[in-house]
């Protein structure tokens, strides 16, 4: 188990997020960014398209990330990182270029540059910090908002379903695609370190519960992230050279009876407070379909 392999006390103690940054209390993105720093150290160079992460840096003349960060427009995260990675390589600088984009900057506005960089096989790590809506502009729905969730543009619950971005990127036949969660830092750190050793385009989709947008108490960020995995609403897996593998604890949850009921996860979130029984059924069906796809893929490669 990855949990055992990683000793928390041996992680770098350096501050990769500066205290006094502009994030809301309980922000998952800053937790994730700290883990990014712990995993890759000072070799990481981040490219940050518009989104919460660009706002969290705070106001000039200071910035709140403890790593070099290049701010760029929404649509150009992966394109900018492609150029930066090539320039650094030509100059002989040993660095890992990391795109740190939100779900809007990945699945909606930044999808074309993400797809382009993946297809060209640029040597970058792309991290999508998925808080399931446009949080910094006021909680508007994105294409990664789950079914039935309230946002300021879907008052009666999101009619759509979550876009399968990890599968879309994996379909580009890139060497490494993984999902991770704020609630499992050791898993995320191990995946980042694994990605840093691989040459080519690497994609990690980080699930990041947002207290403000999901309407829960700021102290529960870690708990809700863990519940998402334990109920099966979020699945931890990785595609290494196209081969799918479930990671703990999701590898024990292939059997639905092992999962906690989804109600435990959604009852803590204000965005699902008014969800209708029909929408809840659709949400459950979506989750079951995700698991069914994983089961089919595992069976197809002879692992089940």
């Amino acid at each position: 188990m990855i949990e055992m392999a990683l000793n928390i006390k041996s992680l770098p103690k350096k501050k990769y997020v500066m205290p006094g940054h502009a994030a809301c209390p309980g922000c998952p993105e800053t937790i994730g960014f700290r883990h990014l720093g712990m995993a890759l150290g000072d070799k990481a160079v981040t490219v940050i398209p518009a989104g919460c992460s660009a706002v969290i840096q705070g106001l000039w003349p200071k910035q709140g990330w403890g790593l070099p960060a290049l701010n760029i427009v929404f649509a150009a995260g992966a394109a900018t990182a492609s150029g930066l990675a090539r320039a650094l390589e030509r100059r002989g600088v040993d660095a890992h270029v990391v795109v740190w984009a939100g779900d809007g900057g990945t699945a909606d506005i930044g999808l074309q540059s993400l797809s382009g960089a993946a297809e060209r096989g640029e040597n970058i790590i792309y991290v999508c910090v998925d808080n399931e809506a446009y949080m910094n502009t006021g909680i508007q729905r994105s294409s990664l908002t789950p079914h039935g969730a309230w946002t300021t543009t879907t008052h009666r619950g999101n009619p759509g379903t979550k876009k399968p971005i990890p599968q879309i990127v994996a379909a580009h036949r890139v060497p490494y695609v993984a999902t991770a969660s704020i609630g499992y830092p050791w898993d995320f750190i191990a995946k980042l370190r694994k990605a840093a050793k691989i040459r080519g385009f690497k994609y990690i989709h980080l699930h990041a519960p947002c207290p403000v947008g999901w309407r829960f108490d700021a102290g529960l960020t870690g708990k809700i992230a863990k519940l998402a995995v334990e109920t099966g609403a979020w699945i931890l897996y990785e595609y290494e050279n196209g081969k799918l593998k479930l990671n703990p604890p999701s590898n024990r949850l292939l059997d639905p009876s092992k999962r906690k009921p989804i109600e435990e996860y959604i009852k803590l979130q204000g965005r699902f407070r008014n969800i209708s029984p029909e929408s809840l059924e659709v949400l459950k069906r979506d989750i079951d379909r995700n698991w069914e796809e994983i089961r089919t893929a595992l069976r197809a490669q002879g692992d089940l």
Binding site: P19, G20, H21, K62, Q63, G64
Partner: peptide
Amino acid sequence: LSPSEVGSAGKTGSWR
């Protein structure tokens, strides 16, 4: 450019 520094949004302890 902005260098990484503590307190880019001020003394955030007052939010508490």
